[in-house]
Computed example of a mutant assay.
Amino acid sequence: MKRAFDILISLILLILLSPVFIYLFFKIRSNLGTPVLFRQKRPGLGGKSFEMVKFRTMKDVVDIYGNALPDSERLTSFGSKLRSTSLDELPELWNVLKGDMSLVGPRPLLVEYLPLYNEKQTRRHEVRPGITGWAQINGRNAISWEEKFDLDVWYVDNKSFWLDFKILLLTVKKVLIKDGITADGHVTTEPFKGTKND
């Protein structure tokens, strides 16, 4: 039922929001250049990697050694607006339609975090990652990594169609009030470095 719901809703949204996709494509191209889409390997169900797509929000700016500058120096005001409205996440509907992701589930994080998880935290990969999730409506980037992972595992243990429906409705509210977009002192959130004393 969950997969059928994901396919139906993602397909409907991709069709209905196609004018928004076209508008954002040209806006991003004029503000940030190409490529318009940001692609990155992320761990999905069972920790298996897939290519997640998002709208690009940062400039390609590097230092004299060719290393990317910090996010705070690459994120433009235009990119910040995309993130604050979560419009940069829209292409992930394609990942949902393909089956890489679900509408609701733990957010897909970086592949390099995989070796840093403890046994409990690894359980977040027992379900497909989501565009939104229980952690996103309960603090998003404004809470600690440990709190996020606890919320992710709680979702894995309590997932249901009605819980997903509730999360989707609360996500709309969170996006409208722009709550929990960033962590203190960071343009998004600080990198995960592993759980201490575990």
Rank of each mutant, 00 (worst) to 15 (best):
G33N: 00
G33C: 00
G33K: 06
T34H: 01
P35G: 03
P35C: 03
P35D: 01
P35N: 01
P35R: 01
V36P: 05
V36L: 03
V36F: 03
V36Y: 01
V36E: 04
L37Q: 06
L37W: 14
Q40E: 15
Q40S: 08
K41R: 12
K41T: 12
R42H: 09
P43G: 13
P43R: 03
L45V: 05
L45N: 13
L45S: 08
L45K: 14
L45Q: 12
L45A: 12
G46L: 05
G46W: 12
G46A: 06
G46V: 10
G46K: 14
G46T: 14
G46D: 15
G47V: 08
K48V: 02
K48D: 09
S49P: 14
S49Q: 12
E51N: 14
E51Q: 12
E51S: 09
E51H: 07
E51K: 12
V53P: 10
K54A: 05
R56K: 06
R56D: 10
R56L: 06
T57V: 12
T57M: 08
T57C: 10
K59P: 00
D60S: 06
D60Y: 07
D60E: 13
V61H: 10
V61Y: 09
D63C: 09
I64W: 13
I64Y: 09
I64P: 01
Y65Q: 08
Y65M: 14
Y65H: 03
G66T: 07
G66W: 01
G66K: 04
G66S: 07
N67C: 14
N67F: 03
N67L: 06
A68Y: 00
A68N: 02
L69F: 02
D71C: 01
D71A: 00
S72G: 05
L75H: 04
L75I: 00
L75G: 01
T76C: 06
T76N: 08
S77F: 15
S77N: 10
F78I: 04
G79A: 04
G79P: 04
G79R: 04
S80V: 05
S80Q: 15
K81N: 15
K81G: 10
R83Q: 12
R83D: 03
S84K: 15
S84P: 13
S84G: 11
S84I: 11
S84D: 10
S84L: 10
T85D: 12
S86F: 10
L87C: 11
L87W: 05
D88H: 02
D88I: 02
D88Y: 00
E89H: 13
L90E: 15
L90W: 07
L90K: 03
L90V: 13
P91C: 00
P91V: 00
P91I: 05
E92T: 11
E92R: 00
L93P: 01
L93T: 07
L93G: 02
N95C: 13
N95G: 15
V96H: 08
V96T: 11
L97A: 11
L97N: 09
L97Y: 08
K98D: 13
K98V: 15
G99Q: 13
G99E: 12
G99S: 15
D100E: 09
D100T: 07
D100R: 05
M101N: 07
S102I: 01
